[in-house]
């Protein structure tokens, strides 16, 4: 896996390097996160998703979120990526430059910049991709995270090989790929020049066993690069293999947190994913 000097978000005047209650060594510290949705087009009803979640992720750590369907796992990832707005609470992200930024309160343009450079997101659903070649999609993710164009293209080729995307597909438009192929292209783009924080929401859900194994290997190797990973996997085997810590969500709150060995075999925790 290729590493590059991370792009440093320019230091903004007035951004703290320390916040009380936030450990000095985390990449991500979520504090008191609440999120609900007001559905104006239905009848103005409110759907509660998260009620006060605290969570830390450190460099090289892989924290897996577990819990039943609707527990709020995806909502949490999306709040961190700013695809969802936070209701209240803080999402402290420590940049490569050492500043602590509250993603929940960051101006849109700053959040957009942080995304391209320091926070990656690979989801179970694939956002509409323009009709661009597979390799250019992966390479531009590398460029956004500080690679030169030529290096990015080489790294993109290596990443595509790792996720077993056949070379004859590299120059075709991503729109013609199968669901599983798209998911692997997404993973390649998410892990090239790995961001400081990578959010994974069921990144292997569409893959057959062989491809699934290849992608899990790739994710396992992220630890070496110091990337902090916050993930949701639908199967407990993947969690057991990859996670350094598991956080169980239920009813929008943290029910338990601990090593995979302890948590995954605890019969009292709601871990099965209803589907």
């Amino acid at each position: 896996m290729t590493t590059v000097t991370p792009v440093q978000t320019p230091v903004r005047p007035g951004t703290p390097a320390h916040v009380p209650g936030v450990p000095g060594d985390t990449v991500l510290s979520v504090r008191g996160l609440r999120k609900d949705f007001t559905l104006h087009t239905i009848d103005g009803r409110t759907v509660d998703a998260l009620h006060g979640v605290d969570l830390d992720v450190r460099p090289g750590e892989h924290v897996a979120l577990a819990g039943t369907s609707g527990a709020g796992k995806s909502t949490l990832l999306r709040c961190v990526y700013r695809t969802y707005l936070t209701g209240s609470g803080h999402i402290w992200f420590r940049t490569a430059g050492g500043e602590l930024l509250d993603v929940a309160a960051l101006p849109d343009a700053d959040a957009a910049e942080l995304r391209g450079q320091e926070i990656g997101y690979v989801s179970q659903f694939l956002r509409p991709q323009p009709r661009r070649s597979v390799i250019s999609i992966v390479a531009s993710a590398g460029v956004a995270r500080g690679m030169g164009r030529a290096d990015a293209r080489e790294a993109a080729a290596a990443a595509l090989r790792q996720v077993a995307i056949a070379e004859h597909l590299w120059d075709t438009h991503a729109t013609v790929l199968s669901g599983g192929q798209k998911q692997r292209v997404n993973i390649a783009a998410g892990t090239i020049a790995p961001p400081r924080l990578l959010l994974l929401d069921e990144p292997v859900s569409a893959l057959d066993p062989a491809n699934r194994a290849a992608v899990l290997d790739l994710i396992a190797r992220l630890e070496e690069t110091g990337t902090a990973v916050l993930s949701v996997f639908h199967d407990l085997d993947a969690i057991e293999r990859l996670a350094t810590r598991v956080v169980v969500l239920g009813g929008g709150q943290v029910l338990a947190t601990g090593a995979p060995g302890e948590i995954l075999h605890d019969p009292n925790l709601p871990l099965e994913v209803a589907r």
């Binding site: 104006h40 999306r78 700013r82 707005l85 959040a111």
Partner: peptide
């Protein structure tokens, strides 16, 4: 106003929600 994907996934104003729907 917001990030484009946020406006699509988590629109706040009733009118934005209507447009997205």
């Amino acid at each position: 106003s917001g990030l484009t994907d946020q406006l699509l996934e988590d629109p706040q104003h009733p009118y934005s929600q209507q447009l997205v729907a």
